[in-house]
Structures are given as structure tokens and as C-alpha cells.
Design a protein around this nucleic acid. Structure first.
Lengths: 161, 161
DNA sequence: TCCTATTGTTAGATGAAGCTAACATATTGT
DNA sequence: ACAATATGTTAGCTTCATCTAACAATAGGA
């Protein structure tokens, strides 16, 4: 058993909190073209000063271009960080949604929560597992058997109450 | 998309770091009967003052009984917290080991990393999923098909290099 | 018993992440 | 163009989690 505080994270210098900020910045940029501090704060569920503070730290890490009162843009570094995070996110969300069959919004939230903690090896393997389920092991696509998972849950539920 | 810093965690007042400390305390107690600050620190990968500090905070949360230079014990509250964490841990480790087929030690580490972040709903559903795989959906135990997952990975590997 | 070595604690500093209150800048309506 | 409203930043404080350096307590051997 070995510990794993935020300090012992895989992504150099980028804390999971800052990762979150970065993703939301990207999302806001994608959706609205610009990043407003208020929107970022509200997406992160924090106050605007906290968001400003995060921007300053992200800038120090060269992940975004930031000057007070000016529009925020991602640096090349920031963009590649985003790409890494995004693929993790998709794999996790896919698993939560299509295998565990959790509600869509919740699956997304959970992916957000975990994508900062899951190690690359696990994501890779999970991606392979999803591929396995989709392609099937030669015969029928195994993901089909997920339908049986719903039924299984249904049976369990009714046998209880 | 909603954020999820450590502040927005499900377990009242108990940060993921303190959760880790608590688990290690439990583990040391189980293995050696007593909890030595040095061992706790080394298990957590931190210095002894950090461990002492954690003990003080855990005591403030009434999860352990702690007085300077005296042996540490878990309170009832601490024990129930441990039980909760432990069941999460087992579900995750089971999944990593028996479904994703990750190496044993790594599966354990990953479970440690994630058990503090995964939401209860996801753990519950994952547990059901594992149950589903073990029991099978009426016919053969689906967990068998995990063997096919190994083969799948093997095929992929050889088709590449 | 008492001196030394090991172990544990306190003090004081740091950085991350957050908050409120106060201030500064932009934007917009007239 | 300029006052009023929106939005963004600074200042100063808190807590968590960590560190090093210095100090205190305990346990064992002579």
C-alpha cells in the first residue's frame, strides 16, 4: 500500500484542480468563442477571484496566455494537455455510460471527477476493454450483453422489493 | 460540466488525504498491532511531522483516539469510515484485477488512488456489474469471457509488432 | 540507574486553493 | 460622451498538507 496525494500525480506540475480549470476554459472557448471569468467561476463552482487566481497560475505554467482584462487563449502546451485529458475523459465517460449504464449527465460528471486521478495505464487498458466489448471476441459484439446487465439489475430489483 | 475539487467531496469533512492516512493506520494496526508514526509516515511517503499533523486532524474529527506519545486507536466512527472505504477499495481492485486484468500490485495502487474520488453511486453500480459478470446472465458466467479479453489483447499485440 | 539512540512532537515556513470586501476596468444605454 | 451596470482584479485572510530544524520523550544497554 502506497499513498497518492495530489503531489504524486502523473501530470508534471498540473494539479487536478488546475486540470479542471483548463478543461472548462477549453469548453467555454469551444462553446462561446471566449472565456469569461464569471462563466469559468460558475462552471467551476467557485468565486471569480478564485478563477482569476487559477488563470494566473495556469499562465505561470505556460498553459494559457493571460493578461489582466484580456481574452484568454490556450498555448500549444495547453492544447496538448487538453487533448490528453480529453481522450481520458471520453474513455471514462464511455465506460460509465455504455457499460455501467449510468445516467448521461452523471457519467459525464464522474468522468470529470476521475480523469485527473486515473493513471494512464488504466485508461489505456480500459480503452482496450471498450474496444473489446464493441468489436466482440470474434463472434457477436459483446457490448450487446450489456443489455443483459440491465435485465440483471431489473431482476435483482424486483426480487428485493 | 460541473467541477469537483476536494471540497465538494461526499464524505463529510474527511479529505481524500486524511482518508488515506486513516486506511494506512488501519492497515498498520492490522499488521503490527500498533501504529508507529514513523511507519505511518513511510507508508504515506511523507515526513513524520506531516503524519503527526494528520493524526491531530483525524483526532479532531473524532476518527481516532490520539494523545501525544500514546498508542493510536480507531474510534467507532473511524472504524465505520474504514469499513466504507474498504468496501469501495475491494470493488475497484476486483475490477482492475479481474476485468481489466492489470497486475495485482498496480490494481491495488490504482484502487487506493481512486477510492477517494469515485462516487458511491458508481461504486454500487460497479459492484453490481461485477456481480453480473460473476453470476452470469442466466447461462455461463460472463467473467469467463474475460479470458477472451486476454486473447483479444494478445491478438492486437501480435498484429501490431 | 542513567546515558544514548530512536522515535515523536512543536515551531515556523511554504504553496495550493479557496473566500470576502474593496477597488478597477469595460460595456452599455441614453 | 458619460453615468450606471457588468465584469474582472487585488488585497488580505483561512485551511490543508507539506517541509526542515530544533526540541522532547521513551526504550534499551552498560
Amino acid at each position: 500500500m502506497k499513498a497518492s496525494p495530489d503531489r504524486a500525480r502523473p501530470n508534471q506540475g498540473l494539479s487536478s484542480t488546475l486540470e479542471s480549470y483548463l478543461e472548462h476554459i477549453h469548453e467555454l472557448q469551444r462553446r462561446y468563442g471566449a472565456v469569461r471569468v464569471t462563466d469559468l467561476a460558475s462552471a467551476m463552482g467557485c468565486t471569480t477571484p478564485s478563477a482569476t487566481n487559477a488563470l494566473r497560475r495556469l499562465a505561470k505554467l505556460e498553459l494559457i496566455n493571460y493578461e489582466a482584462y484580456r481574452p484568454v487563449t490556450l498555448t500549444k502546451l495547453g492544447e496538448s494537455a487538453i487533448r490528453r485529458l480529453d481522450s481520458r475523459h471520453r474513455v471514462l465517460a464511455d465506460f460509465f455510460l455504455n457499460v455501467l449504464e449510468l445516467p448521461g449527465e452523471f457519467a459525464e460528471e464522474e468522468a470529470c471527477r476521475l480523469e485527473h486521478r486515473v493513471s494512464p495505464a488504466t485508461v489505456t487498458r480500459l480503452a482496450e476493454f471498450m474496444e473489446f466489448l464493441h468489436e466482440g471476441a470474434g463472434d457477436a459484439p459483446l457490448i450487446r450483453q450489456q443489455l443483459e446487465f440491465s435485465k440483471f439489475r431489473e431482476r435483482k430489483r424486483s426480487s428485493r422489493g
